[in-house]
Write a protein that binds this DNA or RNA. Sequence first.
DNA 1: GCCTTAACAAGAACAATTCCAATTTAGATT
DNA 2: AATCTAAATTGGAATTGTTCTTGTTAAGGC
Lengths: 151, 151
Amino acid sequence: MNVPASKSSSPEETIHGHGLRMTDQRRAVFDVLMGERDHPTAVEVFTRVRAKVPNISLATVYNCLDTLTACGLVKTVAHERESARYCPNLEEHAHFFCESCGTVSDIPLRPRKQPQDVWNFPADFSISHHEVSFGGTCPKCAAKAAKQNRN
Amino acid sequence: MNVPASKSSSPEETIHGHGLRMTDQRRAVFDVLMGERDHPTAVEVFTRVRAKVPNISLATVYNCLDTLTACGLVKTVAHERESARYCPNLEEHAHFFCESCGTVSDIPLRPRKQPQDVWNFPADFSISHHEVSFGGTCPKCAAKAAKQNRN
DNA sequence: GCCTTAACAAGAACAATTCCAATTTAGATT
DNA sequence: AATCTAAATTGGAATTGTTCTTGTTAAGGC
């Protein structure tokens, strides 16, 4: 269960490639994530999906998120033990959490760079994945704060 | 509550500098973390501390860990929504989680390097902190696996 | 159209952490 | 040294986010 979803194939194909079915619920959960790419929590996905699939249960949302993640269509984002968030951006990237407004932004990796350029791994560590999250103030909130201070 | 503990001063001084007291419990929790620097969870700290302070409660361990963290004597380590771990290494560093044996290793930042060298932040993001965690196989487990494969 | 298995729904269970109210303690003040 | 006050600790209850369980529904191959 670690086959990356090739960007060309549809989510249906990817899911079928894992021997699983594309159901209304999975489709709706995926569409919600693709529709508003703001890194919602499971509960946020749940409330949004209900607009389309009114009888879906929270357990099913969790199941769908898990299977989408297992198929490599979605990434799970963890930050400081807050509730998990979900992200359909499959490019390598880090996350920035604005402490003032709570928004989460994707931060792309620079081309041809890798974490080992900055962190000094003793020899023979074999890295299979990394999760990088930043906290601070986003440009919007920084601007707002600057305006306040001017008065 | 964001004054870094200067390395020269004792934990007592640092705690007093925050207007707080050094109690037996806080001392014991701190000593446990300094004694075996393996990134224990709160419950692991709890069981270890009980050897010294048999009546300490788990709630107090959580309280102590919080105050030590607030005073900058200890860092909280989060990884993929597992239980929090605690670390008395105040140098800037990332963490490596071995998926095979579960050990956590500190990975130092290279001198004069910073995360922005690798991740491409749009202008005006003001970063106040970052948390970086890697998953993979540690040298010990890699060696073990290689040995197995040789047979 | 039937049958097997995957997927779903609803709620119970769970684990980690936080909260709360009552008691104890540290240490400043007399 | 006794007293006082705020801070710290305790134990248990409560909360939160997530997973598990059991019965029901629905796909898709035959």
